[in-house]
Design a protein around this nucleic acid. Sequence first.
DNA 1: GCGGATCAC
DNA 2: TATGGTGATCCGC
Length: 627
Amino acid sequence: MSAAAGTPPEGGGDRPWQSYHTAYTNAKAGMEGVDKEKVQKVIYEMSKGSKYFENEQRKEAVTKQKIEHLRAQCAALTDNDISHFQKVAEKKMLELEASRDLSKIWLHTDMDAFYAAVETLENPSLKGKPLAVGSMSMIATASYEARKFGVRAAMPGFIGCKLCPGLVFVRPNFERYTHYSELTRKVFQRYDPNFIATSLDEAYLNITNVCIERGITGEEVATELRSAIYQETGLTCSAGVAPNRMIAKVCSDINKPNGQFILPNDREAVLTFVSTLPIRKIGGIGKVTEQMLRQVLGISTCQEMLQKAAFLCALFSEGSADFFLSVGLGLGGTETPEQRQRKSISCERTFAATNDSSLLFEKLDSLAENLTDDLQKEGLKGKTLTLKLKTADFEVRTRAVTTRNYINSKEDILVYATKLLKAEMPLSLRLMGLRMSQLHDEKDDPSTSTQKTLDIFFRSSNDQQDFFLHDESCFIPEQRSFGNHSNEAVISKPLGGTKLDDVSSSAKVAPAEKLNEPDNLISPKAVASSSKPDQQSWIDGYICSICGFELPPGFEEERLEHSDFHLAETLQQEEAVDGTRHISNERLADRERPCSTTPTPKKKLKSSKEGKHIPIDAFFTKCNKNL
DNA sequence: GCGGATCAC
DNA sequence: TATGGTGATCCGC
């Protein structure tokens, strides 16, 4: 209730476009001579009134509230508090300073307008033209010619068009980018066999040894390396050299494109460099953090982090404060981190917003298929499945379940995903996504999935436009991991985790009351206590409430068999876990309808692929035929 | 463990 | 007409 409605604190009123800075807030290379006011105005005019715009406004309002809250916290600090946190901060800064390591030389390389440059290389007629790689909806990369007009990555194409009439569009072609990326990596390899690739077009190299062995400077290495890359790819890149990765990354941006910047391994040089450096340049400090630090504490340069150290310690978590102080000291990332293994795998798709449930289930089906393919390609299974939804008005929600056993088959995924989606309906969506986490390498597990065979029955040559699908041969996230933050101690809570029990069985309860109350997703007990445990619910009479599978009216027999399929699947899942199957056994006992999938001896069911799957395969063969 | 946010590319 | 996809992390429950 602080600000009067009529007079927004800054930018509102006369010049509404000034208050709308959605993304594009960090100055990018090649945008120096741009009339920012004009660009802002165009973006505002093109966005105004859209659902996207409205959502951005809501988000900005939330950020503003957060800022107000922090300000209040700040104002409530007593002199005592402040002197206490000053001591805390000074101790921390001494510790951090003691960890400073100036013995390493790091080089960061960044290809110049990579996708656009590759496209131009392959099609020289594009040379000199303002080019956008992407679509009318989204630009992945803009050429430097286009950047002069304010066009840039992450901007929707139609706004790019407005800013730059004559903007040429090219669809992304990731095979090409991967090819050229591999060429660059062959060069990196020669300078640091343990180089860290953070994306197709960026990498960190520890060139300490090269410098020592060859008796040359970091600058000479950078020059040579950039020249080699140009020789072998025909593409230019920029480089930064510094005593750590955090600073090296900033340096590679300074003389972009086709340039380099070297910061000597000298404490004073680092501190001077950082003293005027805007915090937004640091990786890990984005739009929101920048706003919070500026508007709450008046911090805009890295050095000011040190001046406000006590407040940083008072207002933020220890991890965040450590990070901020490291930034102020110009510290971060001198050791080569361990190769990390992937922690999640996901796919998501945007589509024309719809509230048609059968359409949504179709999308979900396709996502499940994609995810399964990716999981099986990598030989992975997972325990936590997360459904991501973006509503027609851009609100994002996620809903997750953790299963007792590792899964990766399409059918298993669909059972859980459908349940999660159902619990949110009805609603109108423009995006859905599925993510699997808590991963586990399938090779380690003797009970390998045998569900692959089912996929043939579902395979529907879907035409997807994977414009922004990244090649992921490499991933080394760098975010906020510059320091040697060994305080990674994950406190394992003494939590009696009430695991979500088998979703498919609770789905089964859903009685004829179609629009049932908030589904007892989390309550396995409801299953056991249900009086009609085996009733399958069919939405609108012919869509399976569990997986969205459709059966036209008149296919009662098939519906019964379909229900059997889900029951069998439930049993499989529970059997696979060995033990704690009492619920499903009860259900089985209740069942009177003949069901050929009688549980075989529990211990060996996992490995007995045949007996387990024949009935299911038969069912889908039949269904497929009928539809 | 979940959900919302933030961030990078 | 129209504002992406993948992966990670952190915080507050």
